[in-house]
Design a protein around this nucleic acid. Structure first.
Lengths: 321, 321
DNA sequence: GGTCTTATAATCATGTAGACTATAACTGGA
DNA sequence: TCCAGTTATAGTCTACATGATTATAAGACC
């Protein structure tokens, strides 16, 4: 329905300057060999994207087109992430605003060969401090003093304390718990502290004291951080993990996938109990011996669950740490 | 009310087909006397909105401007809701796409007098089936047979069963639990079944069998449904209720506000226990006798909590029913 | 003074999450 | 053949959160 035609009686016939360009941008995620990956183009520093054009039926379908064209990868599950529209996104040369509607897509790598121009990158390449599966990552010991230095570099006491507290909460300093969902807050801190290359490009010419993680173009890394945070939150209450799994899988494979996404280890018996009691999966009856030890039961996702319960809550043992 | 303020007289001749118009649209919520309200203009059928213009620093600031201009109401808390960009939003006459970035804003009524052109409407005027505070609302008994009739009107058996199941899950038929977060799914069903006026306008000329709830322009009612669902979900894990409360309040007032939003009653002792043990509030030391019975302690929100914990989870006893 | 209303404290049963232990079934090498 | 290593799977125990219920306190109103 025509939004403008909706009767508040405004005359918009003469509108000119309000027009903007809209980009569609995708964070395509898959998990391969227990590594969570994002699909990139260019020098592994760019997310697939393209302008929202009139011939696109919907932004989702436009996005599918761009991603398939740029990477050869068809998309399955898609959800809207966020619409970025701040002034830094204005095209500087012309007086033109550029906004970006970002999406999170979940697939499996095998679904397509992929063109040579694209590739899957572990998202921990861009956010090395996010992987706590083998304990606290070493980068954090490097990052911490820099963050403290940045905090103490503030002019007034209030800002100093506020910065220290933000860092402590986000990174779990001072005996606080690590909260894996704070990915975006952590990236924002590291950015503000000038510890990533992206921050340096707008500031003075002095090189950053530390480049933490791989660089991405424009605000793409921020968008990936948003996607990680969303996904880490969502797997706890919606059965979206199964979009990333092959048709049949063992419970340990499922656990490894969840661990890859959340960046932390899960207690095995508890994980199994939770998955089984929720009736999210069913045995295929087959087993596989490819896992090394005792052959494991193969399971498949019970798609029927989506019709049975309101929004099948996938509870996962990921509440604390 | 002049929306086309900007006109910097650019040369439109070279514009490509990719340019679109962007509208900002606000669902402004407050709770007055235990009634959850949305701010409307026009015949209580339109949400405040306006085009995203170049002089706006950010969409949020643009939104504040439009809402204040159209309703005289300043906005506090704002969060992005969803970006609507499907083809039905295309301006039919011109080959022009219109997308809408919608926002959820939380305020208190008293904060401004408001212009005569606007007003607060209880959101249950638009969604009478959503209020379960006095038990199952009577509308549901009227709605149910119509929904079943619609389901059985499908041509093939598969669709019939699917429609019945969707309705049963969303509305809690067949001894299922009522899930207050499914507001959007319920509206979509009622819309698809042709039971709201909005649906009739695009279909054949036959009048709808039932008009359930107040009409809103275009897809505004759908946007409100999205906002309600988001808010009902969010109050369970973020302390956003306090944006709707006066500076000091009693615990029962707080409970009534949460009940108003969620559309269901809460067990009083359990509510108090949960609120107090989370240290979200502190006593002011004062009491009020305006509540009828024994004077109640007055509390205030502990803003400090936002700095102490990652994302102060406001647990509320609203999990089941 | 009695009754109404609301506030506030305390109790009890249930269920779930987290941590831990034990046993089963296979592989590969000595 | 036995043993070590690996993984799968079942079961236990404890702490705590949740939901439901009851009891008591303190005011207003008649």
């Amino acid at each position: 329905m025509d939004h403008q035609a909706t009767g508040t009686g405004k005359d918009r016939g003469a509108i000119k300057a309000d027009e903007v360009k809209v980009d569609l941008i995708a964070v395509v995620v898959s998990v391969n060999d227990s590594e969570p990956c994002v699909l990139t183009i260019g020098q592994a520093d760019t997310l697939p994207s393209g302008p929202f054009a009139l011939e696109h039926r919907s932004p989702q379908s436009g996005l599918r087109g761009w991603v398939e064209q740029q990477t050869g990868h068809p998309l399955g599950y898609i959800e809207q992430l966020y619409t970025f529209a701040d002034r830094d996104r204005i095209g500087a040369a012309r007086q033109q605003r550029v906004i970006a509607i970002s999406y999170l897509a979940l697939t499996r790598k095998e679904q397509a060969a992929g063109s040579p121009k694209c590739g899957w990158q572990s998202w921990y390449e861009y956010f090395p401090w996010e992987d706590h599966r083998s304990g606290t990552p070493p980068v954090l010991d490097v990052l911490r003093p820099h963050l403290i230095e940045w905090a103490d570099g503030a002019s007034d006491t209030a800002t100093r304390r506020e910065r220290r507290q933000r860092a402590a909460i986000a990174f779990g300093f001072d005996d606080r718990h690590w909260n894996e969902e704070l990915t975006l807050q952590r990236y924002e801190l590291v950015y503000e502290a000038g510890l990533v290359q992206e921050a340096a490009s707008r500031r003075d010419a002095t090189p950053p004291p530390l480049v933490a993680g791989k660089f991405m173009v424009a605000d793409h890394r921020r968008i990936v951080a948003t996607a990680i945070a969303r996904l880490r939150s969502k797997i706890k209450y919606r059965p979206v993990v199964f979009e990333l799994m092959p048709p049949v899988f063992t419970l340990l494979q499922l656990q490894r996938t969840v661990e890859a996404l959340s960046g932390r280890l899960i207690n095995k018996p508890n994980f199994r109990r939770l998955i089984e009691q929720q009736e999210l999966v069913e045995k295929t009856g087959e087993t596989t011996a490819e896992t090394g030890g005792r052959p494991a039961q193969l399971y498949r996702f019970r798609h029927a669950i989506l019709d049975e319960r309101p929004v099948a809550g996938t509870k996962l043992p990921l509440t604390r740490g």
